[in-house]
Design a protein around this nucleic acid. Sequence first.
DNA 1: CGGTATTTTGAGTATCGTCAAGGCCAGTGG
DNA 2: CCACTGGCCTTGACGATACTCAAAATACCG
Lengths: 266, 266
Amino acid sequence: MEENIPDNQGGARHSRSNCELSQLSQLAELPVDTLKELARICRPLRFQTGQIVAHEGERPDFIGFVHSGILRMQKTLEDGRQHIVGLLVEGDMFGRVFDGPLNVSVESVADAEVCAMQRAPFESLLLRSPELDRVVLLNILDELDRARDWMIILAKPKVKERLAGFLMVLCSRFAGVDHILRAGSGTIDVKIPISRTDLAHLLGSRPESISRAFHALADGGSIAIKKPDLIEIQDMDALCVVAGDEDAGNHPTMEHLLEFLHGRDD
Amino acid sequence: MEENIPDNQGGARHSRSNCELSQLSQLAELPVDTLKELARICRPLRFQTGQIVAHEGERPDFIGFVHSGILRMQKTLEDGRQHIVGLLVEGDMFGRVFDGPLNVSVESVADAEVCAMQRAPFESLLLRSPELDRVVLLNILDELDRARDWMIILAKPKVKERLAGFLMVLCSRFAGVDHILRAGSGTIDVKIPISRTDLAHLLGSRPESISRAFHALADGGSIAIKKPDLIEIQDMDALCVVAGDEDAGNHPTMEHLLEFLHGRDD
DNA sequence: CGGTATTTTGAGTATCGTCAAGGCCAGTGG
DNA sequence: CCACTGGCCTTGACGATACTCAAAATACCG
């Protein structure tokens, strides 16, 4: 039960009759006829904060493309506790093409729109469209990279380092996602999308330690805590140093980010 | 330079004129003509312990299928330190199909045989063979799962828990790999394939703490240290409890493993 | 058998998890 | 409009754990 595409009874709301697939940058370059076929088999779904999109162990009848909002992937441990293994944002895909049940649950962290592609026709289209297949493949490869980046961050011995790494990820990979980053005057405001408790699960720590780590970073001068979930980044380079610089020289500079954000805000 | 398939000058040795592709269980089910095409574009390579198979940031001209031995994937941090993000064993694939440069280095931990598929013809074959495409897709999805499992393990607060989780992974996912597991009398001997230092990097700790964690597990009675790199597992259930049981009720039992190993040894 | 690298042990310090209490904010109801 | 309530974040104190540095013991290799 409940393995089908969620309907109104299930809690999700159909927002429009079809998705605006071309807004997803990865799909935009697909051939027109492929896009048309995609549009035919996809259903837009809306989820409110806290709703379950897919359950671990089930095999939903759809493959999801996140259109807006933020979802979190989590695994349920034996003792019932949930452990976050990643966040999904605009443009991300979830669901196991050609494969068995999910091994993560997906839950909306903020109000989210998801394009649900019916599994069977999507897989069949995948076989006929090499371009779509390629997009899906690259998407998964991308997610693999993200998981590896998380591994590097999680392997840091100190909470402060892991938290700094997390903030760097928000500034790089999540930079394009609306409502997360906002340009200030020579600084950048970061809206932390999840609670301290969730952040603690994600970083393998406790809420108290996360809180202390935030304030330790603030005392160091690299960030300021405007509100508990609104962080102002004052010194990106210092943050990189604390984070231990996961990817050698691959981090965004403050100037580059500000430029990017000002471009987006106009 | 050195972005091509390693040749004899580069250190890797061609072992035979063609790979025994059918030995790789995932490929065995492919259509015969696809296998033939694969055989034509693949080169067997041999690597000795410590050899670099592929450099981070490069885009090797081949996609690798591990035939035997163990390789490790690692990222180079800014300070030059290397951080292990995963191990590759028999049946695993590496190299980014249809995509840019690698973002991990691959290095052989033990003498290894790798089937190197020339990139261009492999990608072209991928477009023509849906079955091969599916195999590749599932392989990457699998690796994504493994990365997520690592995240769960890495997020454990105590080193002892992470180490127990690592041992459980060796007993489940690496069970089929030769020379890692060996059946004892009601116990299982595990050959730790990497040094304490590497293990420390993998688990986000230090060699000293890893050593202490090993001995703490031994004092608890769940394992015995026969040699520094040869661990006898005496109580798998106890080990699961210490590990915190990542995947609810998904761990192998001692009996099941012993049965499996005895079947293999005959 | 000697030399080197790896592993182990020890002592001291820093960090983190735990428990408990207090503060901040939003929503509710008088 | 204000007091109350509940959830989340913060702070403090204390014990447990892990990191650091240094040295000893062991294993490995020729």
